[in-house]
Design a protein around this nucleic acid. Structure first.
Length: 187
DNA sequence: CAATAGATCATCT
DNA sequence: GATGATCTATTGC
């Protein structure tokens, strides 16, 4: 089942928690989402949307259920899914996946990864493994080649909450969500 | 094993 | 002109 737009048109934190355990699919490759972070509107200064609408951040303010892909550190791209109703900022950073399908393709795209565990355990890693780039910025994630689905026989997940990684502003806000004990969570 | 430097560029000041 | 929601290779113990 592909997640419908209504799933994303909710508060960002609920979407971030709800995405854990879901399957991110791009072409022949897919992986289970095991780690997310919420980036809010308002006074969350760590979020790209904190300084208002710009050429880069306009998709965060757009309709939910779309991909926000940005380029960072001159080398890597990171994937977010837009939450909140149209007009309100909020997005969820996908930080780590447990590879499910197309593993050989992922290994070809990530020669530096020597174990399955390292294939997609990080924001920059999973975009490389799934072949996601800025070409996917703004695409609709409820249809097309990039989607999120509920797994067959979905199991309940135990969620662990911690501060977000790699930021300076609001560094102690508990907005990082992981599946407790899952070995594919990044370090 | 832990610490750190280097890669490299879009975006905003 | 500085900085950043990172990753990797290399150095040093």
């Amino acid at each position: 089942m592909i997640l419908r737009r209504g799933f994303y048109a909710r508060p960002t934190v609920e979407v971030a928690r709800g995405l854990l355990g879901k399957i991110l699919v791009h072409g022949e490759t897919s992986g289970k989402i095991v780690e997310t972070e919420a980036y809010l509107g308002g006074d969350d200064l760590a979020a790209h949307s904190a300084r208002g609408v710009t050429a880069r951040t306009r998709v965060i303010f757009g309709p939910p259920g779309h991909a926000y892909v940005y380029f960072i550190y001159g080398m890597y791209e990171c994937l977010n899914l837009v939450a909140e109703p149209d007009g309100q900022p909020g997005c969820v950073l996908i930080r780590a996946l447990e590879p499910v399908a197309g593993i050989e393709t992922m290994q070809r795209r990530r020669p530096a990864a020597h174990t399955i565990r390292d294939l997609a355990s990080g924001p920059g890693r999973l975009t490389l493994a799934l072949g996601i780039s800025r070409a996917q910025n703004g695409v609709d994630v409820t249809r097309g080649s990039l989607t999120v689905r509920t797994p067959d026989g979905e199991e309940p997940v135990e969620i662990e909450v911690t501060p977000r990684i790699g930021i300076r502003q609001c560094a102690d806000w508990p907005l990082r969500f992981t599946i407790r004990g899952n070995p594919f969570v990044s370090r």
